[in-house]
Design a protein around this nucleic acid. Sequence first.
DNA 1: TTGACACAATTACAAATGTACTTAATACTC
DNA 2: GAGTATTAAGTACATTTGTAATTGTGTCAA
Lengths: 129, 129
Amino acid sequence: MPPRPGLSKSELEVARVVWMLKDANVRAVYEALSETRDIDFTTVQTYLRRLEEKGYLNVRLDGRSRFYSPKVRPRTVIRETVDDLVERLFGGEAMPLMKHLVEERSFSVEEIEQLRQLINRLEGADDEQ
Amino acid sequence: MPPRPGLSKSELEVARVVWMLKDANVRAVYEALSETRDIDFTTVQTYLRRLEEKGYLNVRLDGRSRFYSPKVRPRTVIRETVDDLVERLFGGEAMPLMKHLVEERSFSVEEIEQLRQLINRLEGADDEQ
DNA sequence: TTGACACAATTACAAATGTACTTAATACTC
DNA sequence: GAGTATTAAGTACATTTGTAATTGTGTCAA
């Protein structure tokens, strides 16, 4: 179990922006989010505050403004989130999700090739006992 | 956009049980859920009612008791759910999720082979223009 | 026919979530 | 230094979610 409260869907979205920006104040996050979505500045403020309260972000004061940066590694958050989804939607089996993705998200030829490479690499580093 | 309100994490879990049972009354769903999770009978009742209200389940009356069955196909719900996650967590790119799954969920040799097959099959039925 | 249960239906209610307004403090601009 | 913009901080508030208690009603067994 994660030692932190989970994130809601929208919170995840905001967290992702911070991951991309590495270190950002409210305005920067607000602007990034505004690209794709109609949202109020103070709403972003609230999200960032909650993300900090929940232990996902660090805050640093620079002058009068607060800069947020990841505290938990994206990879970790992604793992927890995806695991949770797999648990609830597929009873813990990851394969059906893979299958779903492969079948429903029409990948390009290049992407398929990329995938194949990934799998090949896996087989090399196989840690089955 | 889905024409129905989205499902919460727990609602998804309950929906999945109904999918598996195909057609079930509260008790059956309650019993299936109890296997893995401590939950009250009436809580299950509430979830099922909400799932129906949201348009995900059909209800049929058999004697005095209500039998629930899927109204929206699992595949559809899964697509909507996964798409939403991919959107928020990976900005709409499915590949990073695949990559994550392949790297983080140690698949067995058999599963890897299965995956490979899946990909091969894909290439045959390639519908790029 | 009377409990004891089963199930439906209704209601409850705190916590989490999405969304924003308000107020206060500062900084920047003439 | 008065007015304007920026940010922080606090507060608000309806909706959704998770969880269940309560109340009504029929069913079955003794």
